[in-house]
Design a protein around this nucleic acid. Structure first.
Lengths: 340, 340
DNA sequence: TTTTAGCACTCTTTTAATCAGATTGCTAAT
DNA sequence: ATTAGCAATCTGATTAAAAGAGTGCTAAAA
């Protein structure tokens, strides 16, 4: 049905539209994309592509713009996934080579680098805490009435929280806490901090329920907290012509402002390495005018978080996907070195 | 020069303009603000106020809008500073009564509450770290090669950072670190972590320069880091008619996106309790189309950070200032209870 | 059968012109 | 000192006309 020439026409139209943001005419294709046919022939192909649903018109005598179905075909079949220059490769490498003490910092660097290279708004979110395994849990006394709980997970994340008390805590109590919690929780997934465990801990430490209760509460609270979002290049989107519509701009601000939405956006289904959601393919209504491209960076089977780009449906998928692939690869190499 | 009646006219015009965002006509004033004069009289006063620079026209036959000089007079002399309802008082009180473990959480709550009550975009920033006094510094070993440094300051802030090593650290070394650093730094302002101290510490601990050097570097780095910004209600601004101009909206996004700008904005001169910068009064070019209202919340002479509102010059100064005053008062009370 | 030239037709965008409405500034009267 | 009244000015909405871009289709060419 969609023969090779049609695909080439579709590809040309999409690429032209990505560049210009204007409906593409048959003439423009003939002139700039080296298809050796007359504009009339291209027009026929365009009419056919429109009938099959890959193109749309804004009005009867306008040029064509890609439909979501058109973008989908483009992403699935027509894209180049090495659309990345030597300069970009060098830039990304140098950025990612920065030495960091905390794993989250690397995610931040990757996020901002992607935004810089692609010129799109980029977001990242840490891995879902509840699936991680507790490697160590440590209590530290700060002053006499403040306790800091530090939790180390297998993926190298460190979460800490502070609990205040109305009475003094002794070093002895802290020691007991360290012993008890580690003994019971080390090697367990974080979500295990649930009722049975609480009861067990209460039993063992009846002498200080007053102390242990707020601790467990606070730890659970911190771990249940939204993973931290990191946003980079929000303003970049506003340079794009589609954001000249007040309505689109407002929607966009609203999305970035709504943590829940951002979190959903980054955490929706992960079939492939790199996931592309075009317009209506997004589950959330608010996202249906945008495209989202996300990837998880992992080491082994361990999820280290998700990085995503949000932009117009007229997104430079080719560049975005190429950059993401390269960053993903580089991050993995980096992890191996670190031997975490 | 500016007699009482002129002031009443100016006040009426400003309040009307704050409500409607439309140039105000002499008729509107007569009808809604109970000035017992004809529109012709008001027109004369308006002409005079314009000549003195308190009002402006958008074109020859338009109504008047306040000039920056007009807003300034309004803020300095005509404002009510108890423009806050009983419901609002209750709401703010209840919000601020939330029990928190970390001082920063209180700032966050205050920030979002202010944004909710005033309907403006609200920002906060922590106190400048370098002036704070170190109350305690504690090293904690995480695993074998990771050290966490926790710094407690006199204002109740807790900063922590992680340092990774290429070789194992012993508990013994950690003990020494704790002893040395506390001995030397407790009671000192954070900025003291400078060269002389480094040298002293090197002397005392020659046996582990390899360990101590990265520690000092990392601590200095973390303390020098930008104070964390907290932003609430960015989308609220986009409901305002002035943000229907694409240019204004873009500028605004850019401001919110530029940490340096936000930090400058919150940290500029503090003559009064509550500081109002109207348009051109802002030092930074980018802010010259907006108004900023900020206040510091303190306990005693200790700076706990700054909260600020950024909005259009046509801001409801009366409400904003009233709310800030109330929040400021409440926060101080809260601190006293806590006895920090 | 496939491709193309050519042209009528459609729709958008731009420009200009007109008109109704709002508000002021000024003059003369109160 | 205040006000009524009115010409003058400017905006914003509406309409009309013209210019421009691109398509779809027909008939000819390859």
């Amino acid at each position: 049905m969609i023969d090779d020439r049609k695909k080439r026409v579709l590809q040309a139209i999409i690429e032209e539209y990505i560049n210009t943001a204007e409906p593409v005419s048959s003439k423009a294709i003939v002139e700039n994309y080296g298809l050796n046919y007359s504009s009339a022939t291209i027009r026929n192909e365009m009419a056919s592509l429109e009938k099959s649903g890959y193109l749309e018109k804004t009005h009867t005598s306008s040029g064509r713009i890609p439909s979501e179905k058109g973008y989908r075909l483009y992403v699935d079949e027509l894209i180049k996934d090495d659309d990345i220059s030597l300069e970009e490769i060098k830039y990304i490498s140098s950025k990612l080579e920065t030495k960091v003490n905390e794993i989250e910092d690397l995610t931040k660097i990757a996020t901002s680098t992607i935004s810089e290279v692609t010129h799109y708004t980029t977001v990242s979110i840490g891995p879902s805490v509840s699936y991680q395994i507790i490697k160590e849990i440590k209590f530290v006394l700060l002053g006499n009435r403040m306790l800091m709980a530090v939790i180390l997970t297998d993926t190298g994340m460190v979460k800490e929280t502070i609990i205040k008390f109305d009475e003094d805590i002794t070093e002895k109590q802290v020691e007991t806490l360290n012993y008890m919690f580690n003994n019971k929780l080390k090697g367990e997934p974080i979500e295990k901090i649930d009722r049975p465990l609480e009861e067990y801990l209460f039993d063992e430490m009846t002498y200080s329920v007053k102390v242990i209760k707020p601790i467990i509460e606070q730890i659970k609270k911190v771990l249940a907290e939204d993973e931290t979002l990191y946003l980079e290049g929000a303003n970049k989107s506003f340079e794009l012509p589609e954001f000249n519509s007040l309505e689109v701009a407002k929607n966009f601000i609203n999305i970035l402002d709504t943590k829940e939405l951002m979190s959903d956006m980054l955490n929706s289904g992960f079939a492939q390495d790199i996931n592309v959601y075009i317009g209506e393919e997004n589950e959330k209504d608010e996202l249906k005018d945008f495209s989202i491209v996300t990837f998880k960076h992992k080491v082994g089977d361990k999820d280290l978080g998700t990085i995503g780009i949000i932009g117009p449906k007229r997104m430079d998928y080719s560049k975005v996907i190429s950059v993401m692939k390269y960053v993903s690869k580089k991050l993995n190499e980096k992890r191996d070195e670190n031997g975490e």
